[in-house]
Structure formats: C-alpha cells, structure tokens
Design a protein around this nucleic acid. Structure first.
Ligand code: MN
Ligand code: MN
Ligand code: ZN
Ligand code: ZN
Lengths: 139, 139
DNA sequence: AACACTTTGCAACTTTGTTGCAAAATAAAC
DNA sequence: GTTTATTTTGCAACAAAGTTGCAAAGTGTT
C-alpha cells in the first residue's frame, strides 16, 4: 500500500520522496535483511548511490531500520518491527546469516539472553549474530 | 621474548619474517583488540598496507588471531588464547567495545550462552558483541 | 502560484581493500 | 657458507565503498 508507506514517513517527520518510498517499500516486501548493494540493484539503479546512503542513514536515525553487524564486515539493514523511535532502538533479537544462500534472518521471536559483564562495565547494547545453514539450504 | 614469537610462527608452519614477528609481538603486548589502522600506526608505518592485510589474513587462517564483528562495521582482530588451530576457531567468548575510549575487550571467561534456533537451522558460529562503558571510563 | 525548506544527483575526493608481478628475504640443500 | 628453491614483500595499478559541497529539483506550506 502506497499510502501506508507515506504514513510511516510522515509519522517520522520525513517528507515523502520517491527514493524513500521505494526503499521503504523494498524493505517491507523483502523477507531478509538488505545490504547497500542489494538496494542499489533492486531499485534498478534508479537512485544515486549517495541518496541510498543518506536514506539508510536517515532511516536508522529515525528508528525505521536497524543495522546488523556481520563477521565478514558488511553492513546489513532490516526493518525495525519493535517500536523503535528517534535515536532509540530496542531490537533485542537474534540474527542468523546463512553461509550458503547468504540470506540474513531477523529472528524476531528469539531474544538475546542476558549476559553478565565484569564489575564496573555498563552494557548499552548487545548484538548476537549466528551463522550457519538456514532451513531452506539444509535440504 | 623474540624466540617465543618465532616459536609460535614455526609451530604454525610460517616462515619467520619481520612483519609477522612485529605484528604478532604487537598483539601480545596489547591488552585490547586491534583494527588494521591501529597496526599500521603502531608499527610506525614500517610495513606496506598490503603486507598487513596479508599477515592478518594468514594469522586468522592459522588460528593465531580471531576477528570481531562490530556494529559500526570495522573489523577488529585479537589473539586467540584458546587452542585454535588451522581453520578451526573456537573462541567462544563475549566481546565488549567501550563507546567512550574505543577499547575492545575479549571477555575470555564469559562464554556465549546457547541460543535455540528455529527448526531446520544449523548454527556453525555465534558472535556476541556488547557495547557501552568499560570499568575505566565508568568513573 | 509563490515561497521557504529539504532532498537529490553529480562531481570530486578519501578511505579501504584487492591483484599481479618483480625484487627481496627466508628456508632447505649442498 | 654458498647455492638453490620457495615464500614473502613492496610497489603500482586498480576496484569498491563511503564522504562532502553545491547547484538543481522536489516537497510542503502559505
Ligand atoms: Mn533484525
Ligand atoms: Mn576475543
Ligand atoms: Zn540459506
Ligand atoms: Zn572505556
């Protein structure tokens, strides 16, 4: 729904533009996390690289998407499904990257367990990323 | 000890060279994880960028150092203290990155808890990275 | 429709990482 | 210790990834 996407943008005090609409639409229709390069390809090179960088940055700031750290050091982005807001993410779920098909899953219903840290340490964020084989590739 | 470092290299079937010796020495004398750029600076630009890339890659392959994924997408490297071997890492510990001083700690004695994955998924690796304030910065 | 404000695309640039190859260094053989 | 075979290094050239300034285009408001 086009209007629904515009709603999300407006709710976050963002003006409704082609690039933002298309990229947000892409995220919503995609089952897995996306890398910058994926977005570039899947929008059929419709937007400038710089615009995509800036759009993703804005979305992360607004709490519309969150980033996923990976072992091979590529940045991945996925929709926030929890109620994240401006500068305040709380996507406390586990991520799984399939080594075979490369798909990254947000395991929304699996939350990151509490981890005890040494005296004096204060934890602000915890990322838990697993990798291996997904159910589709594990034939 | 110079000889000790040479020993480690030989044990891993690596020829003893200046760059490998210096970089390994640097890791052993450093309490925190190092980024490529750190190594470049701390060896006072003694070695070519390419050599550092190749040395790190070799060390990771041999199980001498392991990588740490980070939220801001920079690769960090730290000494393996467990008995990792050629192509078989088992550094099952938590990492902590201080947002204030930037230091990354290997919390060797805190192991990553088991996490249940959905039916059909097979986990091969789990990374758990926390960030916040370390004991030194939490005055 | 006119205006103020925001976003975009382009160009130019920096930073990061990769590859091929000849010269230098290391390890093994003599 | 010298010669030889093998590995490693540095350089150059390149590719990919990310950043910045700025004019032109687009958006939202009156
Ligand atoms: Mn997620
Ligand atoms: Mn570690
Ligand atoms: Zn898969
Ligand atoms: Zn600190």
């Amino acid at each position: 729904m086009k209007t629904e996407i515009a709603e999300i943008l407006k709710r976050n005090q963002l003006s409704v533009t082609d690039s933002r609409t298309s990229i947000l639409e892409l995220f919503r229709s995609s089952k897995s996390a996306l890398a910058h390069a994926d977005i570039e390809k899947k929008t059929s090179e419709q937007f400038d690289r710089v615009t995509i960088y800036r759009t993703l940055q804005t979305f992360v700031e607004k709490g519309i998407v969150h980033t996923i750290p990976t072992a091979d050091n590529s940045v991945l982005y996925a929709l926030c499904k929890d109620n994240c807001s401006q500068g305040h993410h709380h996507d406390n779920h586990v991520h799984f990257i399939c080594d075979d098909c490369g798909v990254t899953y947000c395991l929304e219903h699996i939350s990151i367990p509490n981890v005890q840290v040494p005296e004096g340490f204060i934890t602000k964020q915890t990322d838990l990323v697993m990798s291996g084989q997904c159910d589709k590739c594990n034939a």
